[in-house]
């Protein structure tokens, strides 16, 4: 420590170089997002102006109101749909995956390793492999056009989140569970009253991840939903953009406002994201 303090001018120079480098890299990563944001506050003509303008001048705040009042892009409704979709999936994932993760992480039973191995296989399987039959089955029972096909699978669990949660469940001390068992607590009670409250943070982490993934999920809702009023934002944005005469500023505003809630969420919870991903080293 004292050695470092002596070398202050050099350390300071190193620090400056470091931040200059990091800011330069940040600029590259920010560019697409920045371009989307400024385009959202320009008119169509200004987006494509020559020479390029790097700041919207004037800032077209009216783009916000014009987006929110359109008939052919029910933004508010689709926003609520996204909240419902992501929220439901996050809740279901926390519940269903913690059941399986408790079993894999805290309980010993024959066949456990086999079932967990299969879970990893399921995690590795490309969605498209299983997609066609599932899609046809939902069609046959007449539930396409609703959120059922999008949400029901999470009632049973999800390989990735089970995997993630299991890493945390494995950290619960065995002695704690054994003590509860000696007291005569049922396994269900141990799970619900002892383990779940202890794993509050991991559960929130998994819920956050589920929220972000679902918010940006595109393929499944595109295929299953059949009504503009029912689309989540990810799909609404796409069908709006694919119209013949493209209104760039409106769709950029749409994209900006779609991404904004997730960015705010990330800003405030990034430590939790970090912790969730720290647990994923494959063992």
């Amino acid at each position: 420590m004292s050695k470092q303090r002596k070398a202050t001018p050099r350390a300071r120079l190193a620090m400056l170089t470091y931040h200059a480098l990091m800011l330069a890299i940040s600029a590259i990563f920010l560019l697409p997002f920045y371009w989307m944001t400024i385009s959202a506050f320009k008119t169509n003509a200004e987006i494509f102006s020559d020479p390029v303008t790097w700041l919207p001048d004037p800032i077209r705040w009216e783009n916000v109101t014009s987006l929110l009042t359109r008939d052919d892009f029910p933004f508010v409704q689709q926003f609520l749909n996204s909240v419902f979709y992501a929220g439901t999936v996050a809740l279901l994932v926390c519940l269903s995956c913690s059941l399986a993760a408790y079993s894999f992480g805290c309980l010993r039973w024959r066949g456990r390793n086999l079932v967990f191995g299969l879970t990893i296989c399921a995690l590795l399987m490309p969605t498209i492999v299983t997609f066609l039959p599932v899609y046809l089955a939902w069609s046959k029972i007449g539930l396409t056009g609703s959120y059922w096909p999008l949400i029901t699978p999470f009632l049973f669990g999800d390989a990735f989140f089970i995997f993630m949660l299991r890493q945390f469940f494995m950290g619960v001390p065995r002695e704690l569970l054994d003590a509860a068992r000696l007291d005569g607590a049922s396994e269900f009670r141990i799970w619900w009253q002892i383990v779940m409250p202890q794993l509050r943070t991991p559960l929130i982490i998994v819920g956050l991840f589920a929220t972000v993934y679902t918010w940006n999920e595109f393929f499944m809702p595109l295929i299953y939903l059949q009504d503009r009023e029912a689309f989540p934002l990810s799909v609404g944005l796409f069908t709006f953009q694919s119209q013949r005469a493209v209104e760039w500023s409106v769709s950029m505003m749409g994209a900006f406002l779609t991404a904004l809630p997730m960015i705010v969420l990330f800003l405030f919870t990034q430590r939790l994201f970090q912790r969730g991903l720290s647990s994923t080293g494959l063992k």
């Binding site: 052919d72 069609s139 396409t144 595109l222 609404g236 069908t239 694919s242 119209q243």
Partner: peptide
């Protein structure tokens, strides 16, 4: 309206017909 215009529209329609 607003179900998209290309493959995604056809796909929704097929889904509804199969259902």
């Amino acid at each position: 309206c607003g179900l998209g215009q290309d493959t995604e529209f056809t796909q929704s329609l097929i889904g509804a017909i199969t259902a």
